[in-house]
Design a protein around this nucleic acid. Structure first.
Length: 329
DNA sequence: TCAGCTGCTGGTCCCCTTCA
DNA sequence: TGAAGGGGACCAGCAGCTGA
């Protein structure tokens, strides 16, 4: 490895502090240069400068390296100066003017492009804001409309006070529920049709409209406890099927039927209404009575003396009005 | 083996809430 | 304010389980 001294410069503060710097550059065998700086500080005079405790600043620590082997730039002198003709000067001026104009045009284009991007971004933000406002408006308007439609529907589905169970059971129909919903609450009807997928269903085995109608009936009951035509009908069915009281509890909480207590009350009310109807019919026209024995088995798995399987026996009677038969008054 | 306990069910009563 | 409905509390009957 060869060693070369490449020179150095000092700042004024270095000189006053009497430090000696030796700067060397090493060039290895592969030609790569490595700079190494060794600094020795002469403390001759044994008197430290007053500024040594001051923090080092770029000003009092600055030095630069000068490569002694670098080719020197030719000095500008009248001897080396080239003589330009007026035509060349004009050409240079024209070229510089064209270059200036090109740079100005590019700068203008850049500014215009930035402005356009900014405008597009602002437009996008405004568009997003308008879109959000439109969605909010649509949602609130739809909600208000459904709310008003729903109130009308609930009022329509509420039976009159003291309405006979017989009438409720006779007129109840899921098709009627759907038809009334379509007329009185078209927005809600369309919404439920889309949610259930019944508007596009072609299945002949599963009528999704029945699910929509059932859902409407359950929601109506949720909104108004008096609107219970559907639940009154279903509770009669579940009673006839022998559903247990706990099953009634579950179905009642789901809004599918009345409570067991109300179901029994409705059944008794229905029995009283039919008995009254029988009295009326039997006093106004000729009737025929059909009776039959009724046997209900109450089985006990493990019979004991005080707990045995047994049959409850009774007699049922069915009254049939006779039309076209003279009735003596 | 059996008395006592527990859970389920049906029924009734009463209080509270909702709605017209 | 009355009607309608929900639900909790309570009772009775029945059946299954368990420990003495």
């Amino acid at each position: 490895m060869d060693m070369y001294t490449i020179g150095r410069t000092f700042s004024s503060s270095d000189i006053t502090s009497k430090r000696k710097f030796t700067t060397r550059a090493f060039v290895d065998d592969r030609g790569a240069s490595v700079e190494h700086l060794s600094t020795s500080i002469s403390m001759s005079g044994s008197k430290r400068a007053h500024d040594e405790n001051l923090p080092a600043t770029p000003q009092n620590r600055s030095f630069t390296f000068v490569d002694g082997f670098a080719p020197k730039k030719p000095r500008l002198s009248a001897k080396n100066a080239r003589q330009f003709t007026s035509q060349e000067i004009q050409n240079i001026q024209r070229d510089r003017e064209a270059q200036r104009l090109t740079q100005a045009r590019e700068k203008e284009e850049l500014v215009a492009r930035k402005k356009e991007e900014l405008d597009v971004e602002q437009l996008r933000v405004v568009w997003q804001s308008i879109r959000d406002m439109a969605i909010d408006w649509a949602l609130s308007t739809t909600a208000e409309r459904i709310e008003s439609e729903w109130k009308v529907l609930v009022r329509e589905f509420q039976p009159g006070q003291g309405a006979p169970i017989t009438d409720i059971l006779a007129r109840f129909s899921l098709q009627r529920v759907l038809a009334q919903t379509q007329v009185l609450a078209p927005t809600l009807y369309d919404l439920l049709q889309r949610v259930s997928g019944s508007h596009e269903s072609t299945s002949v085995h599963k009528d999704r409209n029945l699910i929509v109608a059932t859902t409407i009936c359950m929601l109506v009951k949720s909104r108004n406890d008096h609107a219970s035509e559907f639940q009154t009908t279903t509770c009669m069915y579940f009673l006839a099927c022998g559903a247990s009281r706990s099953l009634f509890d579950v179905l009642n909480h789901a809004g599918l039927t009345l409570s067991y207590t109300q179901a029994v009350a409705k059944l008794k009310q229905l029995g009283a209404e039919r008995l009254e109807e029988m009295h009326t019919v039997s006093h106004t026209q000729a009737v025929m009575i059909i009776w039959d024995n009724l046997n209900i088995a109450f089985n006990v798995t493990e019979q004991r003396h005080d707990s045995k399987a047994h049959f409850d026996n009774g007699t049922t009677a069915t009254l049939i009005p006779l039309f076209g038969v003279e009735f003596p008054t």
